[in-house]
Simulated assay, not measured.
Amino acid sequence: MKAIRVHHHGEPDVLTYEDVDIDQPGPGEVRVRNRAVGLNFVDIYFRTGEYAPPAFPFTPGNEGAGEIVAVGEWVSDFAPGDRVAYVETLGAYAEERIVPAHFVVHLPDAIDFETGAAMMLKGLTAQYLLRRTFRVEAGHTILVHAAAGGVGLILTQWAKHLGATVIGTAGSPEKADLARANGCDHIIDYSREDFAARVKEITNGEGCHVVYDGVGKATFPASLDCLRPFGTFVSFGTASGSIPPFDIMLLMQKGSLFATWQLLFHHLAKREDVVAMSDELFSVVLSGAVKIPVHTRMPLAEVAEAHRRLEARQTTGATVLLP
């Protein structure tokens, strides 16, 4: 079968399309024929070495959707032919792959494979950010950076469904229009505006209850100035680079703030949470409250170009790779 392999860290050209062998699933594992594979910023972190892979060569990719072709011992929840999606397991850039059953869920018939592949990592990230890290309720005012990105578009729709007032930032008029169409009550073009000053204007000086920041270095520490006293800063990505070390006293000086960085993998440590979080995600998608925007489809063999576009922040919504 074909898969993408990385033999050393580097630029997108290190992503090579190769023939590889695949084993039968072991105890607690399933073998999945991928029908679609999701593209995420975390894939870039593994390619460049910001995140360490278990060994070289390795196959990137952390989410996908397809059909079960074989199950290992002790697997009772799945059978060959089942439609499934999975998340948080390295190795998705392939025609077929072995997945721990812990991270696999049944994909509802009403959700196609492309949508399933595009929604697991980004959608479950939105779930834990909105429902577990800071529980957004009606009446809250929130700020979502990169609101036209893959996670951002899900966050804004879901938060609006929960009754929040949603402020989003975007880097171009086109992205601003997209974010506005997906739940943002107010949109700030941070390429032309001081986003912290605009948030103060929009909120009449009160600030937001929570800021969701997947951008990183370029938006910190100004994001703290967008919060009301005792507000929560939630960092979950470094698209512009890592936030530099800072004195924790800054949180006191900015209004006795909370700040956190949480990892999806930790939220998925228990099988019952994998299922419950996925069920909640599927529920809001099936109800129509949240639409998963798949804006680009590319052959798996062209993944290097997909990485270039994602790194250049030229993408909106989700990109899926088709084996």
Rank of each mutant, 00 (worst) to 15 (best):
G66C: 07
A55G: 09
G183T: 01
K200A: 15
T203H: 00
R135H: 11
N62L: 15
G61E: 06
E96C: 12
Q24C: 03
L268K: 07
P80M: 13
A79W: 04
V290H: 01
A85E: 00
W158E: 00
V30T: 01
L130T: 01
H8A: 15
G61W: 14
T89D: 02
T296I: 14
P229L: 10
A301V: 15
A164R: 00
I167Y: 12
G317L: 13
G241Q: 01
H8N: 13
H186R: 11
K270Y: 13
R33P: 02
S191H: 10
H266L: 10
A218Q: 12
L107I: 08
G241N: 05
D43M: 03
P173E: 04
V151A: 14
P57V: 07
T115P: 04
F265S: 14
A170R: 04
T238F: 08
P299V: 13
E73Y: 09
S76K: 12
T156L: 10
G28C: 08
H145W: 07
P12G: 14
G26K: 01
L321K: 02
L121N: 05
A239T: 13
A55H: 11
K122V: 09
H267V: 05
V75I: 15
D19P: 01
I22Y: 12
A3L: 06
N204L: 13
Y190T: 02
P100V: 05
L310G: 06
E67R: 03
F103A: 11
A3K: 00
R308I: 09
Y190E: 04
R271L: 10
W158C: 08
M252F: 10
L300F: 11
V210P: 02
A138Q: 11
Y45T: 09
K200E: 10
T315M: 11
G72W: 10
I248G: 13
P57L: 13
M120Q: 11
V211Y: 03
Y51I: 04
E50A: 12
N34A: 10
V20Y: 10
K291T: 14
V136D: 01
L286S: 13
M252L: 12
V151S: 09
V210E: 07
V37Q: 04
R135M: 11
E67K: 00
A306N: 05
L153T: 15
N34H: 15
L39Q: 03
N40T: 01
C184P: 06
K270G: 11
V20G: 04
H307D: 12
L130A: 06
L143N: 06
A110S: 13
H307G: 12
H161C: 08
D112K: 07
R131N: 13
D23R: 14
A170T: 01
P12D: 11
R132E: 07
A318T: 02
G171N: 08
P293C: 02
